[in-house]
Amino acid sequence: MLLSLGLLVLPQAAFIWLSLHADLGLGQISDAVTLENYLRVLTDPFYLGSFWLTVHLSAAATLFGLLVGFPAAYALARIGGWIATIILSLILTTSLITVVVKLMGLNIILGSTGLINTSLLALSITSSPVQMINNETGVFIGLVQYTMPLMIVLLFGVVQTIPVEIEEAAAILGATRARTYLRVILPNARAGLLSSGLIAFNMSMGAFTSAVLLGGGRVRTIPVLIQQMIIQNNDYGKGAALSTMLVVFAFLLNLIAGGLLARGGGGQTG
């Protein structure tokens, strides 16, 4: 509890305090307490647009991650044995590689002269290179690769808690594979899907490197603007206000999701 207070609450409290003061330049802030920074952000369509951009990219990456990650986790959990161990170890190992290196690799592969585009051109599937980076698509791909490994590992644990016997029971009662998946497995995994999705969403909301390295300077998400305000402009007050709003938004969303989860009973297997 004390550790949480020291590492999480105190820095946030310091940032919230900074956000309540006007910037005077070079990191200096006024003594007077004011809501000016919040008002400026909340009444400026540019910042509101940036918030929307951050939210919809994070939501899209999370949704895609769940759509792809859950079947992968399910397959691994059901395969089990040494094959699952090796694949999970490989997935975990990719998490140890610094995100900059992975994104630079994606930059090379997804670029106009990269492996994918040269293959598409060579096979005459496209007549000109497909723009996969330097735009929102690039950032989306970056967010998916950033969150997917953790999501698969989390969902693997979720699927393991679902007894295989209930799938067998559904099959004996005549359910098809698709029906079993939709009516038995997914409802039982609902709590895990929601919590894994929230973790991935929160990670994406704060992701900076993907937006910078794969957005090509065109995708100004909130973390990019916070970095610019604090590091380049030394406007701690306004940067702190943006940061606080990002945290509050994510926190509220988590609270709502937690409430929904509690109301729905969490989808635990009986």
Partner: peptide, 18 residues
Amino acid sequence: AYFFAASTDLATRFGSGE
């Protein structure tokens, strides 16, 4: 085509002919 933040990144793309 893009706005580069890091010169190392541009060097890679320049070197590859992109």
